[in-house]
Design a protein around this nucleic acid. Structure first.
Length: 843
DNA sequence: GCGAGCAGCGTACCT
DNA sequence: ACAGGTACGCTGCTCGCG
């Protein structure tokens, strides 16, 4: 920590990394973690408060309220009257101040008759918001004592963070390592300090190796002690691991406790804390940011930034770092044997270091996005990691609301949230396509349909004109949504206000990108920033319709989707009026068939049509596709067919195929079925050859029947979204998971696991397999068990064979028939010799 | 007693 | 714990038939 220097007043600039508070001499002091050349703390006195919607005459009464908690009297220290905007209207509120942040939630309970606001804003963030500060903002401070004096604006310079990636290996004779008994065998790390051009990795262990990067110590105690030493020396701002919040860090904590080692790797010498609230456990290390890549990747996958089929270090590394290289010669369950037998020890060291390096490589890719999200939302980096979309949005709104002198609405109570969730809002329109094979398809879409609807119509919970106030406004002063909700044109609501800022900033950034070299650091930073703005813009509609949102508004959400449906239908009609055949439409896109018209005709129509649209709304060309296929689906309860929505394949001008919805893009179908479906699509779209498609399928069926297809291609992947006891149905994945958990010595499958299983020939499910599944319907007749597919499911680890007939009749044939049916082919044509069909010709 | 049909569960996809 | 719209496999129940 910087020492006091009372005489000199220095001015420096620094970057704000995190914030919290301490209590010193009976005062609450905000503590800011900053990084200039070094990382250090600054302090500022600040008082916690919240608002009460009560007249000033009540101030004395409130001031006199008190309660005793742990022998301490909790009461306000002062009250001010302030003018704020509450739900769109100006109002006088009481601002009630306290000595300690922890007083706020306690005192809040004492006020029952009046509405209270902003009582649940974390104190560190409260400070940042009120000072108009965000992480990575430049702060000029005079070091008069240690107190902050002045805060400047946004720091545009790229901030280099020192990152350490960690991975541990543990002794595991029982399969799962037991932290109370099984020692850590090695701690691997990979460290990056871009500013000083350092990137290095080491393995700390206590068995000999000739490998240069293995540092050999006497025992486990020494490696943990040296691990602590290394962290202190390298002094990283970021500690990262894969599943480290649940495994590596808690394990190190346990083992350190055992050896009486002080794990003081925090910047201020405090110990590591584990926050168990929320879905994912969080690791808190004062002064450093811990990142567990696992939940981070889940989040990015959820919002669509990176799509992963599985969440393992290996798949993440391969798909995010885009390296196919992977050292995977170690079976995790065998680690203790390798350690004991000392045969392939070097391989184990190598494997462990590689894991640390892979973790670092993934971090290099995703950290810029987290950093930019943090800058953009003004949420400290440590809180941005693992934040949900709603938390990101809320942070941004809080900052802007405070600047606009608005008080933010409260979160709903449990009951309200439940009611909202039970009452969904009508969504988008999807047109049923006619199944078939088509040529010359033009696809247009609205970029950011919902954001542009929100901005163009000033949609906000507090621009809505209440029924009883309608007489106050003239026509032309408001927009009327298709469901009849009226939105004032002025003043601008906070939601459209922020959204417009986001979109403007993003288009500026995109212009900047055009002038930059894609390989440059600046490009990557700007790209990450525009990407984080995109993530935010796309989340606003969801936030308005989110049951636990502070700004939930049924009327707004319903109006947005109603306008969405209105505009897409208007587009369809206008295209038809202009002589185009509309094949398909989903939410914000339309698929036109050119037939006798040209591409230029379609572009001309688009331009003309765009001039009729309000505000920033604009239809854009997505792409032209020479050929495409749409398929049919069975109408419920009937032996009839209709076009299937959200399932199509389009051949682009470069020979690439864009596939949506087909089994091919789903992880819960066997690779053999997906592979064959892909070949069929290619034969039909690229070559126009029906015969080739049939031949491919027949050959595949033959191979499966002869057991020539490797079992790896029979794997079906799916996620367990519930605890195993909570399932109400006996699905294949449940059976496979239950069987696996009985047999394995390693990590059990639980909620959230992605399970990989095979349908085998063997019907060997123990009688009491389901004994813990209390919600399951137990009636299980002997007869049905003979045809029961689920009971034959086994995870990859224990599957010894596969049921050829199942894979032929339930996987390959349904997948390919989906497409071939459009050509008049049925299952028998594929299974039997069938009648020879000629080449499918296109004109 | 049996098989077809159907409802409900469950998952993953599309925008 | 940001939304709704959609397809579809599997289980197990119901019901009609004989």
């Amino acid at each position: 920590m910087e020492k006091n220097s009372e005489k000199k007043i220095k001015i420096k600039s620094a970057i704000l990394l995190d914030t919290d508070y301490i209590i010193k001499n009976d005062e609450t002091i905000v503590r800011l973690l900053l990084k200039a050349k070094k990382t250090f703390y600054l302090y500022d006195k600040y008082l916690p408060y919240f608002y009460v919607d009560a007249p000033y005459s009540e101030a004395q009464k409130i001031l006199a309220l008190k309660t005793i908690q742990k022998g301490r009297e909790i009461k306000p220290i002062k009250i001010e009257q302030v003018k704020k905007i509450v739900k769109g209207k100006e109002k006088e509120l009481l601002k009630v101040y306290f000595k300690y942040p922890s007083d706020v939630p306690i005192f809040r309970e004492l006020i029952k008759t009046y509405e209270k606001y902003e009582y649940d804003i974390l104190f560190g963030r409260r400070y940042l918001i009120d000072k108009g500060l965000g992480p990575f903002y430049k702060i000029k401070y005079k070091r008069e004592g240690r107190w902050i004096k002045e805060i400047l604006g946004f720091e545009e310079k790229d901030t280099k963070l020192r990152i350490i990636a960690l991975d541990i290996e543990t002794y595991n004779p029982q399969g799962m390592p037991r932290p109370d008994k099984d020692p850590i065998l090695m701690i691997s790390y990979y460290f990056l300090d871009e500013e000083n051009n350092i990137e290095k990795g080491e393995v700390l262990s206590y068995k000999k190796s000739s490998l240069p990067y293995v540092k050999v110590f006497e025992n486990e105690k020494e490696i943990i002690e040296n691990f602590v030493k290394i962290i202190k020396e390298l002094d990283p701002e970021v500690l990262v691991g894969f599943n480290s919040a649940n495994f590596d860090i808690p394990y190190i904590i346990e083992r350190a406790k055992k050896h009486n080692i002080k794990l003081d790797i925090a910047k201020d010498g405090t110990s590591i804390r584990i926050d168990k609230r929320g879905q994912y456990q969080k690791i808190l290390i004062n002064g450093r940011v811990h990142i567990d890549l696992y939940p981070v990747l889940r989040f990015f996958s959820f919002i669509g930034t990176y799509k992963l089929n599985r969440y393992t270090l290996e798949t993440a590394y391969q798909s995010i770092v885009q390296e196919s290289e992977w050292k995977k010669e170690i079976d995790r369950l065998e680690i203790y044997k390798i350690w004991d037998e000392e045969k392939n020890l070097d391989k184990l060291f190598e494997y462990s270091l590689f894991d640390a390096r892979a973790t670092l490589e993934i971090t290099k890719k995703i950290l810029p996005l987290e950093v930019e999200l943090s800058k953009v939302t003004c949420l400290p980096l440590s809180d941005t990691i693992g934040a949900t979309s709603s938390q990101l949005i809320e942070s941004l709104i809080l900052h802007h609301a405070t600047k606009r002198n608005e008080v933010v609405p409260n979160k709903p109570d449990e009951q309200t949230a439940r009611e909202r969730a039970l009452n969904p809002i009508e969504g988008a329109f999807v047109k049923t396509p006619n199944p078939g094979i088509y040529e010359k398809i033009m696809v247009f879409d609205f970029r950011g349909l919902y954001p542009s609807i929100i901005i163009s119509h000033n949609i906000d919970p507090f621009t809505i004109i209440a029924k009883e106030e309608e007489h106050k406004y003239k026509e032309g002063e408001y927009y009327v949504s298709p469901i009849g909700v009226k939105f004032l044109k002025e003043p601008k609501g906070i939601i459209p206000y922020i959204l417009e800022k986001i979109l403007n900033a993003r288009s500026e950034l995109k212009n900047m990108l055009k002038k930059l070299q894609p390989a440059s650091t600046e490009y990557k930073t700007i790209w990450a920033r525009q990407q984080s703005l995109k993530i935010l813009a796309n989340s606003y509609y969801g936030y308005l319709a989110f049951a636990r949102s502070r700004y939930y508004s049924r009327a707004c959400a319903q109006s947005i989707t109603a306008w969405g449906r209105y505009f897409i239908n208007k587009t369809i009609e206008d295209a038809q009026k202009n002589g185009f055949e509309v094949l398909y439409a989903d939410t914000d896109s339309v698929f036109l068939l050119l037939n006798n018209k040209t591409k230029q005709d379609a572009l001309n129509w688009m331009e003309k049509y765009n001039s009729s649209l309000p505000g920033t709304m604009e239809l854009e060309l997505e792409a032209y596709y020479p050929r495409g296929v749409f398929v049919s689906k069975k109408i419920e309860k009937k032996e009839e067919y209709t076009g299937a929505k959200k399932k199509y394949a389009l051949l682009d001008e470069n020979g690439g195929i864009k596939i949506r919805g087909f089994e091919l893009v789903r992880r819960d179908w066997a690779i053999i079925a997906k592979e064959t479906q892909k070949k069929v699509l290619e034969a039909i779209l690229k070559e126009g050859s029906q015969q080739k498609a049939i031949d491919v399928v027949k050959e595949t069926i033959k191979q499966i029947r002869e057991n020539k297809v490797p079992i790896e291609k029979m794997i079906i992947e799916t996620q367990l979204t519930k605890n195993l006891e909570d399932y109400e149905a006996k699905s294949p994945e449940l059976v496979a998971a239950l069987k696996f958990n009985r047999k394995t010595k390693g990590e059990k499958l639980t909620r959230g696991s992605i399970i990989r299983f095979v349908i085998t020939k063997d019907l060997n499910a123990p009688e009491d397999l389901f004994k813990n599944c209390k919600r399951l319907k137990q009636a299980q007749t002997k007869k049905s068990s003979l045809t029961n597919i689920s009971l034959k499911a086994e995870t990859v680890e224990y599957a010894k064979n596969y049921d050829s007939e199942y894979y032929i009749n339930h996987q390959v044939i349904p997948a390919v028939l989906r497409i071939l049916k459009e050509l008049g082919i049925n299952a028998d044509d594929l299974k039997l010799g069938g009648n020879q069909k000629g080449l499918f010709q296109f004109d």
